Amino acid sequence: MIKAILKKIDSGRRFLVASHESPDGDAMASTLALTNLLREMGKEVVAFNRDGVPESFRFLPGAATVVSSLAGEAPFDAGFVLDAGELRRAGNELKPLCRSLVNIDHHPHSEDFGEIYYVDENASATGIMIYRIAREGGLAISPAVALCVYTAILSDTGSFRYSNADPEAFRVAGEMIDLGVDPWSVASGLYESQSEKRLQLLGEALNTLTISPCRLYASVSVTSEMLVRTGATAEHTDGFVNYPRSISGVEVALFFRQVGPAAYKVGFRSKGKVDVGSLARALGGGGHHNAAGAVVEGELDHVRATVFARLDALLK
């Protein structure tokens, strides 16, 4: 598949690079890793994310060039859709704009929507897969690309705390440091530059902490009222699910965020024993064994009861 991707790059001039809505560190960093790589090859590239670049990732090279609308854009020779799982999460409007699509992803059950389907669920991050493309093509990895690849790995392995932090993740991260990446500057950008609004919202979210009677799962919630009260936005909730996950004995953490008058996005994190990907798919969502999500319709109490009932059945 990598050879087919390199051939596609060689034969094209104008490319689109996109990732899923509400982008996390891997989605945004891999987008900019490939964008910078292609631009350094002399290609014309439009980097797109329908939700733009979250504040915590704006230190990444090329972040200022990411667009959130493709209105008026000329056709692209190819579109690279990264870390999306499903095309709709990046935007169904991408397909008619691109002569072909390339799906690069590490989510299990990733939708086969592209002419080229490069999916490896054993890869620790989509950023790792961009690195592989560069290396197999004999392409130079610039400081800008190295910074993005390192950030993608750091983000999706939970700073090398999650089970997907495999030898390849450490090896490639070390190589990126050898190429000039400063680990402290990345950690500072990701974790030491929080806004006051985020901490105020976090305080309200932690007040909703609920631990199940079996003590195997715990959750926190954020409503639209909390966002209005603190002046925060959805992007400020990134990482909230890790707080209930950190409780001793908890195997599954859940984060409920209101996304409509009667709808909540549910984020799941597992410490490894429970496949939350299967749970999310049963609820109409998707994701990995250890990290997944879905949108569930209803008021918060109903949504929580629905999800907890399914999780109880899964734990049994």
Rank of each mutant, 00 (worst) to 15 (best):
G158H: 10
A305R: 10
F48M: 13
E297C: 00
P96M: 06
H109Q: 09
A140K: 11
T208H: 08
G287T: 09
V276G: 03
T230Y: 14
L199K: 14
I116T: 10
L206F: 05
L101F: 03
S221P: 01
G52T: 13
G277L: 01
Y243D: 01
L87S: 11
V276Q: 02
S248K: 12
L87P: 13
R281P: 02
S142P: 13
G189L: 11
F48H: 14
P108G: 02
G286V: 05
L16V: 04
G293E: 01
L34T: 11
L154W: 14
V53K: 11
K3M: 05
A292N: 08
P261I: 07
A173S: 10
I5F: 09
P96C: 08
G25C: 12
F57H: 07
E86C: 11
L201Y: 08
H289F: 08
V67C: 12
S19D: 15
G158R: 10
A309G: 10
D301R: 07
A123F: 06
D77G: 02
Y150T: 14
S159F: 10
D51P: 08
D156I: 13
R304K: 14
G298I: 00
F59Q: 07
S270I: 00
N242L: 11
L37P: 03
P75H: 01
P108N: 02
E40W: 08
K316F: 00
L300Y: 00
